[in-house]
Nucleic acid binder design. Structure first.
Lengths: 194, 194
DNA sequence: GATTCACTTGACACCGTGTCAATTGACGGT
DNA sequence: ACCGTCAATTGACACGGTGTCAAGTGAATC
């Protein structure tokens, strides 16, 4: 125990995270979160003005705890574009299961909630620039298949590695995460590398 | 005018379809649908017990009108597995924009609504068996890249051609439908064909 | 003319979100 | 000790959207 009791805000964030993962983001009400955090429903509103605000803050919180940035260091340290690509699949593929519930919830409300959309887009921009860097590295090494432009290859790589694609393969097709990583590496290499 | 006034049920289905496409499935309430159909909100409930029932029936209706079955004939008539695969991308890729709003709406409520899930899964089963047939044809011709099993290749092809993937590429990456078809053909061939 | 059927009207219950006001209780400062 | 303040509680309420219910209307059919 680092410092006995966490403050209320942290308790709420933890409760939200836990519930979102447990129920895969489905049917998690403000009152459920309050109960799980051991406080009143209204206390939640003292810390987060709306449900979307809470969701969005929770993703930031989870990102901090999980340390995605640190994990991505392995990618930037790769020796070649190909190596970076394979490492990226590994890191990203192992990260996705940890944010499954939360990401799914955010994705679901994104269409109707501006704040959710912003939180999601932030995350996606980061992912997309990761893809862009790798495609650029590949190209500079003359390894990018000639049919692709930087932009089209970045888009396609980003979509192939999207949360939605991962979710379909692991949930609906019941692939293990290891399978996902193996096959996805294969598709990416076949598709982009000469 | 084929037969003057359509019956109320059809008017509701048309109104739902139209609104779903117009607003991409977002914020379409039962009262909006009723107003668009020129009837009272309660009359909608006389024909469809719940919102999800209505959505699910509308997808069936749209499928009938659009005649997906007829379009897929070109696929079964293809001369080779590769040909079938390319034709399938063409047919499916031109079909998706027509069901964009409705499919998006169904997808969104699928997690919380059993009936929506069933309607969606029906559609997906059809799509998946289309993929399976093509992979099988490819394999029987010895054209399927050896690393793939029937099952893993079917899953991957299904996901690559999923509504979600199409939506990401055309909406978020702003690809034209022609671009989608071209690049997707390329990815599929690179990935699956020896 | 009576019945039947599709539809209308208006009211209402339910649920989840977000708001508000009054209250409690613990804390630190003087 | 007393006061202020700040976090949290309690209970009530408005709002919006879904789904239900009961009574009424109007036109077609027998």
């Amino acid at each position: 125990m680092s410092s006995s009791a966490p403050d209320t805000r942290t308790k709420i964030l933890n409760a939200t995270w836990k519930l979102m993962e447990e129920r895969r983001g489905v049917g998690v009400r403000m009152s459920d979160i309050a109960k799980a955090a051991g406080i009143s429903r209204q206390a939640v509103y003292l810390h987060f003005t709306t449900r979307v605000e809470l969701l969005s803050q929770t993703t930031k919180y989870v990102d901090e705890i999980n340390g995605l940035d640190a994990r991505l260091k392995a990618v930037t340290e790769a020796e070649s574009g190909l190596d970076a690509m394979l490492t990226y699949v590994e890191v990203w593929g192992n990260y996705l299961p940890e944010i499954h519930g939360l990401a799914g919830a955010l994705l679901a409300v994104r269409e109707t909630d501006e704040a959710a959309k912003v939180a999601w887009d932030d995350c996606m921009d980061c992912h997309q620039s990761g893809c862009r860097d790798i495609i650029a590295a590949l190209k500079s090494e003359g390894e990018l298949a000639p049919k692709w432009t930087d932009s089209s290859a970045t888009d396609m790589m980003w979509v192939l590695l999207s949360f939605q694609t991962w979710e379909q393969l692991t949930v609906e097709c019941a692939w293990s995460n290891a399978q996902y990583i193996t096959w996805m590496k294969s598709v990416l290499v076949q598709t982009f590398v000469t």
